[in-house]
Every structure is written in structure tokens, then in C-alpha cells.
Design a protein around this nucleic acid. Structure first.
Lengths: 357, 357
DNA sequence: ACGAGGACAGTAACCGCTTACACAAGTGTT
DNA sequence: AACACTTGTGTAAGCGGTTACTGTCCTCGT
């Protein structure tokens, strides 16, 4: 009793309009020539019956499912939220619907989801953010990726390193190396030579790339890389605070800090302030990510902007226009957002309160 | 040449296992008795062939689509992101996939999306956040809502007022009135009698409810409602700043502010500081929503917490367990998060810098 | 005047899965 | 021994579209 009347089908429309289902289908699809009068009658019938196509039936009979899936760690984090937003926008523009799943960073859950996605025959499956890639993970992911490819779904790795040569996927990521290079060069061009790098965990590709960019820039400026200035750790505020304090305590000499991300920079800022150092007069600080809060820090943080939304949009665009060999790699440029945390390096002799190694 | 091999179908599995498709289908569905040996052979075949069911075919043949759709203004705003997160979690727990769409607050776009959702035969369509409901909007929405109901989809209105009696929908919202009552009572119990209310737009149900709660509390404490203390406007930071400044400029007497939400409270805080007022010594401020940044404000903001995730989860739960008459209304409780922006009202004679009306 | 080709429309074969209905054994009952 | 179940499996009819293949007319060119 709860759902008495059945929804009308294409056949009902055909009958009401006095034509065949084929004609109705064609009229609705838009392409294909249909006489104006016939078309009008069909549209009339559609309206009268309140007809709505069944997406599943449509997807089943050969054509695409018109959906793109995005898999993120967590929808509430701004990083993922913005990428997801870009994906959603671009998907909408392309007439697609957007399926969202979360993994909470768990590789197993991610695999489970990708497996599930194969059932949906999504046009694209976009995996955002890295996870720990064990041997077993790689093996399973490879299998699923091939399954997706066979089913005609494009796999795209967004904001994370590509999985390897034998896995069919499109990779869309930031130019971390380039961004880190630019950040470091920005500091160098302000006269800094002793630049501390508060990097992410060793082993994580993203972290390594940023450290690589840092080294490259130093080398380009013929400044030796001092291991004492480079540290690895979690990219959270507490770690930035901790590592900066440690640097200060040890008396390691430095006039600038390149933080692995803005959270770390915020921590560094706090430690510096506590130690009586002024930013940017005594020490310059540059961040990475351009997280929303970075402009509210004290002082507003100069940082490397990552175009999150654009990354999402590009992922969808690439996937949807990819034909055949779907193994591409695109790298999105970054740019520095100059705010107030970087200034010229203090004159060595004015060394108001710098430690010595 | 790009997709040479076709994916195996249930028939391939049946053939490989030497059984009929019915048996395979039953084995995969889980229920229904199937001999252990047969089941094993089928699972073997599934593994060997790397068989994956086709969700569309499954959805088409009667059973549910196993997807729930959520429609929000914008995925990047924390408010929507947390509700969406709750929806996603609960949907996942219920073995559903989650489709996300954004309207950017545009009623037409919302209608367009709901219309689209009918094609998907989602188990539930969850509309989050209010929009301006014109006569035409209501009329179209009503039509679509009935369409959804006929197709067996539940419509739920989440965090927004219900649309009216003739529209079949489940409503899940916050107890705005109760929350506002509690916030105002909190201020009253601290001795405040002149409480400014920085409300949202008149006409928006949510805003009206909060103002209602405010009035009710005042009345309960036998404090007359002074229209000069109540203002309406957009619930953004600039508006809070503006309206507070105006209040100060006009010399309206008040010892506390109840802000329509935390953004407005942040603006009020800024205006107060600029005017040399101390919070909470001179003026107490209470917000609404418990937005993440509210604890980082200066001083940390006392505010009304709204259980966003829980709202999302409840929406899904209600929709999925609703049978038959799907017209329910549930209201989620709120609670005050006490931080540092509220203190006892200053003694009238200590009036260090209060204006007069 | 006649064949060619374009514009429309119809028939029916799928797409891949679920499930009502039918049927064959095996197990107790009486 | 005949009968009623219970179990396990098969057959085939949809679910609601799309589209390849055909078949009319009509209009033109020559």
C-alpha cells in the first residue's frame, strides 16, 4: 500500500505519444533526427506522465554510467574538501554525478572501495591522497586497476605519486619539487643561507620531493646542504613547535625556516615567538600548502599555494577525455603567496640573538 | 583495441562452475540455501574469472540501488562537510554508497538535482540546509517529492524546516529554539538583562526560531524584549562586526551579545575589541554552531554546540528504517560549550565605558 | 519517369541480474 | 508404501532502456 502506482516507463510514453520506444529514446537522447511534431507529442507525454528515465537501465544498456567516484581520506579536512569540491564541479559540468567515499587513510579500506567501485562502472575513479603502499597493497591494487580498465573506467591518482609502470592510471599531482625549489629560492634570494627544513616523514614521496626541491635550490645557489638543518617528522603543528625549539636549544645557526606545511610553520612561529625571536626580522619562515588559516597567523604566513580545486578539476578532465592508453602524468604548478613572514636575512654582525653551532 | 576482453558476466561464472545463473545469483546474495560444495565451486569460479557484479543490472532487476544521495550548498564549508561526513559514515555502515551534489544555495539548482536524483532511484535523498522557498519552488518540489516517493526513495530534509504537510518527507533538524533559549538563559543566569541579539535574515525559519528562543528565555525571566537590541542580517563575520559597531555608535546599552552564529560572534568580538571593550569583563558574548574556529577566537568563544555529524547519521538512519508512511520529524538536542567569553554582568555602577540609549 | 538517397520511425535483440515457478531428490510420517 | 515436506537447482520471464537493422515515404537530379 505504500507505493501503489508504478512509475511510467519508456513504453508508457511511447504508447501515450503513439510512437515506438525507439523514437522516444532518440528524442530524449537529443541527437538523431526526429520530426518536430513527433518530438512535441513525446515531450507532451513525458510531461503528462511525469516520466523520468531510469539511470540504471540506461547505464546497463551499453552507454556510460555518468558517474565519477572520488575516494578521499576524510571529507572534513580542508585539503580533501577542496579537491573533492573541484572534482564535483568539473563532474557536474561534464554532466556527471559524483560518488564520494572515505578511507580514513586505511589502505585496506581503500582497496575495498576500489573493489566496490568496479560494480558501479563509474566513468572515473579518483583516488586522492597517499596511503602506505605495502607489497600486498600494490598487488591487489594492480589487479583492481586492470579490472577497472577492462570495464572502461579510468583510474586517476590525484595528489599522490603514481603506483608504478604496470598499473594503468592517470596521475595528477602537484609539482612538489618545483614548489619547494621556489620556496627555498625565495628565501635564498632574500639573502638567507642557513635555511632549516622541517620536512615530512622520510619515505613518503611527497616529503622527499619537497626536500629534493630544497636541496636543488641550495645547490643552484651553491650553498652546501647541512644535514643538521634538515629534519623529518609528522607534518603537524606540535612537531613544528618541537623541532624548532630543538634547533634553538641546540644553538644551530639559521636565519630562515622552510616548513613542510603550514601547520608545521604555525608551530615554528609559536616556538620562535616564545624564544623571543621576531619574524621576519630575526628569522624568516615560509610554509607550504596555503592552508586557509595561514593568512590569519601572526605574522601572516608567506607560503606556497597549492591549487587544490584545480587539482580536482584536472583529474576529472583528464579522465573524461582520456581515450585508449590511459597512462598519463600531469603536474600542476604552484606559486608563492607572499605575505609577511619573510624578509631579508639579518646582517651577520647585527646578530641580535642568534645561536652558534 | 583499447578494451579487448569483456568482463565476465554471471553466465560465465555459471558455466565455469557448472551450475545455473540462478544458483550463482543466490550464492552471491548470501541468503537462500545453497549446498556447501556448490557454493565453493562458484566462489572458485568467481575468483578465477575475477567476476564483479554489475550494480546497474542488479539495481534494475527490482532490488534497491544501494545508494543514498546528499545535497548540500557547498562541500567545503565545515558545516556541510560535517553533516556530509555523518551521512557518508552511516551510509557506509548500512552498505550504501554516497552520492554528493552541491547547489551553492541556489533553489533552482536544488530542484534540478532532485529531479536528476529521481533517475538514480536512490534509497534516500537528503537535502541539507535551507534555500529560499518561493511559491514556484514549493510547487515543483512537491511534484518531485511525490515522484521520489513513488519510486520508493525517501526524501529527508536535514537541518532545515519541513516544507509543509502535503510533501512526503522526513525532517531531521536541530532544536534551534531550544538552543537559543539555552544560550539566552545562560546569559540571563549570569545576571545579564540587556542582551543584544544579532539574528539572521528575517523570514528564514532557522533565524526566526533562534530569535524565538531568545524571546522565550527573556520572557521566562520576565525581561522585556527590546526591539532596539534585536537586529537581522546575513550571518557572516562582517555583519557581526558592522552591527556591533552600530550598536556601540548609537549608544544602545547592553552587557551581552547573543550572536546568530559563530561567524557573527567573531565579528562582534573584533568590533568590541576595537572599541576598547573587554570580553567578558565588559561585555559577554555567546555564539551558535560551535564552528571549529570558535575555540581559537580571543577569547575562546562560549557557544551552542550543534551535533552536525549526528544530524547526518540520523538522517540516513531515519530514511533507511522508514517503512510506509514516510512523514516523520525528529529534533536533535544541542548543548552549550562553555569557554571564556561569558562572565557575570558588570555591576551597573562600574559602567566603565557603556553608552546610554 | 525513375532510381538514389535522405529523413523518420518501428521491430526486436540485447545489457546482466533477480526471482517466481517448477522440479527432482532425500527425509521423515503414519 | 504413499504422502508431505524440506533442500537444492534449473528455466525463463522480466527490469527499462539503447540501438542495429529495416522499411517507408518524399524529394531530387537527370
Amino acid at each position: 500500500m505504500s507505493e501503489p502506482k508504478k512509475r511510467p516507463t519508456i513504453r508508457d510514453v511511447a504508447k501515450a505519444a503513439g510512437v515506438s520506444v525507439a523514437t522516444v529514446s532518440r528524442t530524449l537522447a537529443g541527437d538523431y533526427p526526429v520530426a518536430a511534431a513527433t518530438r512535441a507529442r513525446i515531450q507532451r507525454a513525458v510531461r503528462d506522465l511525469d516520466y523520468v528515465v531510469n539511470a540504471h537501465a540506461r547505464a546497463l544498456s551499453g552507454t556510460t554510467s555518468k558517474i565519477v567516484a572520488i575516494v578521499v581520506h576524510d571529507t572534513t579536512s580542508p585539503f580533501f574538501a577542496h579537491i573533492a569540491s573541484g572534482v564535483e564541479q568539473q563532474a557536474t559540468e561534464a554532466g556527471r554525478l559524483c560518488l564520494v567515499c572515505t578511507t580514513h587513510g586505511d589502505p585496506d579500506r581503500e582497496l575495498e572501495i576500489v573493489k566496490l567501485m568496479r560494480e558501479q562502472h563509474a566513468d572515473a575513479v579518483i583516488l586522492v591522497g597517499g596511503v602506505f603502499e605495502s607489497e600486498e597493497y600494490l598487488e591487489r591494487m594492480s589487479r583492481y586497476a586492470h579490472g577497472l580498465a577492462e570495464a572502461g573506467s579510468k583510474l586517476v591518482l590525484c595528489g599522490r605519486p603514481s603506483l608504478g609502470r604496470d598499473i594503468p592510471a592517470i596521475t595528477v599531482e602537484y609539482d612538489n619539487t618545483g614548489g619547494a625549489f621556489a620556496a627555498t629560492a625565495h628565501l635564498l634570494s632574500h639573502g638567507h643561507r642557513r635555511i632549516a627544513m622541517l620536512g615530512g616523514f622520510a619515505g613518503l614521496t611527497t616529503s622527499e620531493q619537497r626536500i629534493q626541491g630544497y636541496s636543488d635550490a641550495l645547490t643552484a645557489y651553491r650553498v652546501p646542504v647541512d644535514p643538521a638543518l634538515v629534519s623529518h617528522g609528522e607534518l603537524v603543528r606540535a612537531s613544528g613547535y618541537e623541532r624548532t625549539s630543538e634547533l634553538l636549544r641546540q644553538g644551530t645557526e639559521f636565519t630562515a625556516i622552510f616548513a613542510g606545511n603550514d601547520h608545521v610553520a604555525a608551530g615554528a612561529l609559536a616556538a620562535l615567538r616564545e624564544a623571543g625571536k621576531r619574524v621576519p626580522e630575526d628569522v624568516s619562515v615560509i610554509g607550504f600548502d596555503d592552508t586557509p588559516f595561514s593568512e590569519d597567523l601572526n605574522p601572516p604566513l608567506t607560503t606556497v599555494h597549492l591549487p587544490h580545486q584545480e587539482l580536482g578539476r584536472t583529474s576529472v578532465r583528464m579522465a573524461l577525455q582520456a581515450n585508449g592508453s590511459s597512462r598519463q602524468h600531469v603536474m600542476l604548478g604552484t606559486h608563492i603567496v607572499v605575505r609577511d613572514s619573510v624578509a631579508a636575512a639579518p646582517r651577520p654582525d647585527s646578530g641580535r640573538s642568534r645561536g652558534r653551532a
